[in-house]
């Protein structure tokens, strides 16, 4: 049932112009960044090239991709539950033979499916260079894994905020605020402390640089589970009142 719900969710959004406009804009931005990075790298003197081209792409192209994900995810998630509550379409699911956890996971994977092109776009652009040069494919794979984990985290946050409010704009504002807070927590906090650990940039940076630490993967998955758990609890509470 999760697969069916995810598929229906994906189809519903893909029928709207919103998904296509966001895809087109993202492709333009990332292509611009890709070409800019490439041009800057080619223009460098050999002695100035401390990092390889793949590292430059990892930092700049995948860095911008993280910003794009930050912007598009709340737009995709804000309507998922809040509008369903407001328009009454949530009843369609809650009165069908679908459990609360399946509803939540179905919507969650539906949004992830929508984000898949955004997440794979930087890797796709980078791989166009393989005909002319040798790239560190492991680094690109690690950075793509980082983007996937980031989209998983943003989606879990966005869905939770969407459950909290029946107003999509409020849900989006909340998701932006919380995501931004998680990106700023490592500033002005003691390195090695819990709040510092709670910020995602350092975890994502490792993956951007091709360093796959199980601790970083665990960080994203733990936070995802935390927000999905909160979402489940709110949905169940809604039924019980």
């Amino acid at each position: 049932m999760i697969r069916r719900l995810a598929w229906v969710e994906w189809k519903r959004v893909m029928r709207t112009p919103l998904a296509w406009v966001m895809l087109a804009v993202s492709l333009c931005l990332l292509s611009w960044q890709f070409l800019g990075t490439l041009e800057a790298f080619v223009g460098m003197q050999t002695g100035d090239r401390i990092l390889g081209l793949t590292h430059h792409l990892g930092l700049q192209l995948f860095g911008l991709a993280a910003v794009v994900l930050f912007i598009i995810t709340p737009i995709l998630t804000m309507r998922v539950f809040s509008e369903a509550f407001r328009s009454g379409t949530y009843t369609l699911l809650s009165s069908s033979a679908i459990s609360v956890s399946d509803i939540l996971l179905g919507k969650f994977f539906g949004i992830l499916l929508l984000q898949l092109p955004f997440v794979l776009m930087p890797a796709g652009l980078s791989l166009t260079l393989t005909t002319g040069t040798t790239l560190d494919l492991g680094l690109i794979a690690a950075a793509t894994l980082g983007l996937i984990l980031l989209s998983v985290l943003y989606t879990a946050i966005g869905l939770y905020l969407s459950i909290l409010s029946e107003n999509p704009a409020v849900a989006a504002a909340g998701a932006y605020g919380l995501s931004l807070l998680l990106s700023l927590l490592d500033q002005h906090t003691a390195s090695g402390g819990f709040l510092h650990w709670l910020a995602w940039p350092s975890h994502y940076l490792n993956l951007q640089m091709g360093l796959v630490h199980s601790g970083d993967i665990a960080y994203f998955l733990l936070l995802m589970l935390f927000f999905l758990g909160l979402s489940y609890q709110r949905l169940d509470q809604r039924r019980c009142g």
Binding site: R12, R15, S87, T89, Y90, T91
Partner: peptide, 8 residues
Amino acid sequence: RPPLHHDQ
């Protein structure tokens, strides 16, 4: 209120 997706 019928649970309809008006864009479909």
